[in-house]
């Protein structure tokens, strides 16, 4: 920036820009306007303009909860209300007086006749580890109730439980579920030390699809880096193995110290050099270089 720069001019331009942007935004409505806007003719656009600003937060949250619970309201309005309330919940202190009612509405909507409402409600409930939402998802997957969302979606939502309480169910699904359900179940088992051998077995099974084996291997890496190292070493050294899997396995070991330490010895290095000379796969060669480089002792800083 030169000495001749007009600082004052830049400041004015910035203020003008900010002012114009602010004017362009939809205006927050007053509480009265919000109340008045709750009519049978309320459109999606009307609702889109309802802002959860400081002055109208309480009345707007109330209105949105009413719309959400109103079975006669248009589905589109209820979906917008749900989305807006989800946003409002990001202000936890202000939203606190409405939280219990919001969760209760979501629990009801999780069993709604409307597919999209069910999906959004269960999505939200599972993010909060809600016990009712988790139970409904589990029952859907176990087949003890009519499915509320597609099985793969239910598995994805249920996998958010950080305690991994559904691991036994995921183990079954990883063995017997449909393609997409299996993938979600395999991802979910990444935090389950009890699934290490199952993951190792699927990772090593050449009759499985490559994508499934790769997912199983990546979850195994998280569950047990040491066991992953055993499986990955065999993959890398097996010339009949899928090239993509060999590459991925070696790259993963390069950046997982707990795994790299297990396999990295002179013999393994010699094998890597040999494979590098023999393979036609550029990505595998790159992966070998990456592994070797990552394992080099770091010079002291």
């Amino acid at each position: 920036m030169s000495d001749e720069t007009d600082i004052e001019g830049l400041r004015k331009a910035f203020v003008t820009e900010v002012t114009q942007e602010r004017r362009a935004r939809p205006k927050a409505r007053t509480a009265r306007q919000v109340e008045a806007s709750r009519s049978a003719e309320m459109t999606e656009q009307d609702l889109e303009q309802v802002l959860l600003d400081a002055e109208t937060f309480e009345s707007t949250a109330r209105l949105l909860l009413d719309i959400l619970g109103d079975e006669s309201a248009a589905l589109s309005l209820r979906l917008i209300a749900l989305e807006r309330l989800g946003g409002a919940a990001f202000q936890p202190v202000r939203f606190a007086p409405f939280h219990a009612e919001f969760v209760e509405r979501l629990r009801d909507l999780a069993e709604s006749d409307h597919r999209e409402l069910r999906h959004m409600a269960l999505d939200r409930l599972s993010l909060d580890n809600d016990e009712v939402g988790q139970r409904l998802l589990k029952e859907s997957l176990e087949g003890t109730r009519k499915p509320l969302v597609p099985a793969a979606t239910a598995a994805r939502f249920l996998a958010r439980d950080e305690h991994g309480d559904s691991a036994p169910l995921f183990r079954d699904l990883a063995r017997t579920g449909g393609a997409r359900v299996r993938e979600q179940a395999l991802r979910a088992l990444a935090t389950d030390p009890g699934s290490v051998e199952l993951l190792a077995s699927i990772s090593s099974d050449k009759t499985e699809r490559t994508a499934v084996r790769e997912l199983a291997a990546m979850s195994l890496k998280a569950a047990s880096p040491e066991r992953f190292a055993d499986v990955a070493r065999d993959m890398v050294l097996d010339e009949s193995e899928d090239e993509h899997l060999r590459t991925t396995a070696l790259s993963a070991m390069a950046f997982t110290p707990g795994a790299g330490d297990v396999v990295d010895d002179d013999r393994f290095r010699e094998n890597l050099e040999r494979i590098k000379g023999e393979t036609a796969s550029r990505s595998l060669k790159t992966s070998i270089d990456r592994f070797t480089e990552a394992r080099e002792p770091k010079a002291p800083e």
Binding site: V93, H99, E101, V103
Partner: peptide, 9 residues
């Protein structure tokens, strides 16, 4: 519990 309040069943 205020920000995580729920109805008790």
């Amino acid at each position: 519990v205020a920000t995580a309040d729920v109805y008790v069943r």
